[in-house]
Design a protein around this nucleic acid. Structure first.
Length: 590
DNA sequence: GCCGTTTTCGGCCCGACTGTTTTCAGTCG
């Protein structure tokens, strides 16, 4: 077992947690394993690397014991203790855990009572047992749960599992439609309505959509909500309901009376880990938090809060922006009065990654709109400058001198177009980093650009070592390399990012004052927020760009700003939040 | 099993919903 990814390691720890649950181990031990798994899953560096450096103890939620187990795993390929525990649990329980509604206890009961054997066949055998009505007679089960299990298996087999996440614009539009539908009840009933959960925190991909309503007529609101066109009513109670829509997306509604709405917003925004930490923090002050308010542990007296600001204030904390609520130190920072002054969309003065329809014979996509249209849109957005970063001309269809000629012609064209405009234009280029690390633009063509963005568009599966060397070679290939474009190359829900030694890349960027791009295109959001967070700590600078291929896409800037905010960025961390003169000095290095 | 601005011991977030139950266990977020 030479390589074990973070995800695999997290899965292993979750498996242990499930096994312990079946074996009725101490429940806090179970929680400890689940936390360790969570923590590892959200790590930006590989556990293997941390282990190499003897830094396992820096991972939150990993203590002496689990560190010892991980050490054994990396040294020998197995963990004696885990193997012993797993021997006491039938392997067939684990595949059943993937079915919604089945947890460790039920899985164990089903597997043992129904004699389900074999890992591969477990789900199929369970479905057969359900069809043969062998589940309903079991203790703790009944007709309804038998039917539910069968339905859940069918959903699972269709591939409609929870890990079917969506990008932000789709989540936005679904949420808005549902909100408009609920709001038809009128402002008498709907006093406030908000999108919460991961969408409010602006996580890169969204699972379920969460909506909260402040109302004095909860029954009316819930009744209205469940008439929204849906495929299935998942659950309904006095405080809320959940729907599965026809597009396979789940929408959760929670209602609350207006005086307690602040606690509701806080609770329903999450993240789960933020809430857990905040509740622990509250307890140190003798205060117990829940979705209705804050209870004094001694007196048992409950206080409610109409707004989130009041809720946090009760804990002597300044309000924490939703994008920060991931338990990455925001509660401690708030308590110390050291929360960042987060970047806002209004701070952005320009967009440096724009593709126009000028045909420079690239092998990638051209934009659809002319420069003039982008300039109009940029003025509308309040920008002071933009950068035109068309893809380089195709290197397979042209000789070097032809490329130089194309680039010269293009510069002349843009220079004529930009005279007398009040938005400044930088003539740039998005240059491919070829598999060997060479830039796809001849040296002499650099005379016809102000600066370039370098990015990877091919050979995504090189090893970490090759990829790191490739990127660094490109970053130092020419002084006009100023931005590293969509650094991981990931496409959300489609393609994983490349493997890079970030420390090395950060060091080179810092030395040459190169900015890391935060690509705001919703399918990219690249750099990912967690790497932005790490890079910012190292003092790196960022350039937030939309990578627009049409003027309408320039509006996606806000998603890039969200990524920066989730990475704790302030205005000073972002090069395109600089005024024109300062930005120009940075870009042109003078 | 983890962790520390009261602690190296003794705590550990909190509640809703469902289906099965006559007061609760399991699952989920």
């Amino acid at each position: 077992m030479n390589t074990l990814t973070n995800l695999e390691l997290a899965q292993l720890l979750r498996k242990m947690a499930a096994a312990y649950q079946i074996l009725d181990e101490n429940r806090f031990k179970i929680i400890a394993y689940e936390r360790a798994a969570d923590s590892i899953e959200h790590l930006t560096s590989e556990v293997k690397d941390l282990w190499d450096d003897g830094k396992l103890d820096e991972i939150p939620g990993i203590g002496q014991q689990i560190a010892k187990h991980i050490d054994e795993l990396f040294r020998t390929g197995h963990i004696t203790h885990f193997d012993a525990v797993m021997k006491r649990v039938p392997p067939a329980v684990f595949p059943l855990l993937l079915i919604p509604g089945i947890g460790p206890k039920k899985a164990y009961k089903l597997v043992t009572e129904l004699d389900i054997d074999g890992k591969e066949e477990a789900v199929r055998l369970l479905a057969e047992a359900a069809r043969a009505h062998r589940i309903a007679p079991l203790d703790g089960f009944g007709e309804k749960s038998e039917a539910d299990i069968l339905a859940a298996i069918e959903t699972y087999n269709k591939g409609e599992i929870k890990e079917n996440r969506m990008e932000l614009p789709l989540a936005d539009s679904i949420a808005q439609e549902v909100i408009v539908y609920i709001k038809k009840l009128g402002s008498q009933v709907i006093e406030k309505i908000d999108v919460l959960g991961s969408l409010r925190r602006q996580v890169a991909t969204i699972g379920d959509i969460d909506i909260a309503v402040a109302t004095q007529k909860p029954d009316t609101v819930i009744a209205r909500f469940v008439t929204y066109p849906h495929q299935k009513l998942i659950e309904q109670g006095p405080t809320g309901a959940s729907l599965l829509l026809h597009n396979g997306r789940q929408v959760d509604l929670r209602v609350q009376n207006p005086p307690s709405y602040g606690a509701m917003l806080q609770y329903f925004t999450g993240s789960k880990n933020h809430n857990i930490k905040l509740r622990s923090y509250g307890l140190t002050k003798g205060k117990s938090l829940n979705e209705y308010g804050i209870k004094d542990v001694k007196t048992g007296k409950m206080r409610s809060f109409g707004t989130e600001e009041e809720f946090y204030k009760e804990l002597d904390l300044p309000w924490i922006a939703p994008e920060l609520r991931e338990d990455k130190g925001e509660i401690e920072a708030s308590a110390a009065g050291k929360l960042p002054q987060l970047l806002t969309r209004a701070d952005i003065k320009g967009d440096l990654h724009i593709h126009t329809n000028y045909n420079l014979e690239t092998s990638h996509d051209l934009g659809t709109d002319p420069l003039s249209a982008y300039l109009d849109r940029a003025a509308g957005l309040g920008y002071k400058y933009i950068g035109i970063s068309d893809h380089n001309p195709s290197v397979t269809k042209h000789t070097a001198s032809q490329i130089v000629e194309i680039m010269k012609r293009r510069k002349d064209y843009y220079d004529r177009q930009t005279q007398g405009k009040n938005v400044h234009v930088f003539v740039m280029c998005e240059v491919d980093i070829q598999p060997d690390g060479k830039l796809a633009l001849p040296d002499s063509a650099f005379d016809f650009v102000d600066a370039v963005i370098v990015s990877i568009h091919s050979s995504f599966t090189q090893t970490r070592k090759e990829m790191t060397a490739r990127v660094i070679a490109a970053l130092i290939a020419h002084p006009k390399v100023r931005i590293f474009g969509h650094p991981t190359g990931r496409l959300l829900t489609k393609r994983e990012g490349v493997e890079l030694d970030w420390k090395e890349v950060f060091a080179v960027c810092k030395e040459r004052n190169i900015a890391l791009e935060i690509n705001a295109y919703p399918q990219r959001l690249d750099l990912p927020d967690s790497i932005v967070y790490d890079a910012r700590k190292e003092g790196l600078k960022f350039c937030i760009n939309t990578d627009s291929h049409a003027t309408s896409q320039m509006d996606m800037m806000r998603y890039g700003v969200s990524v920066a905010r989730r990475g704790w960025c302030e205005k000073r961390d972002i090069v395109n939040a600089l005024e024109y003169n300062e930005f120009r000095s940075w870009l042109l290095k003078n």
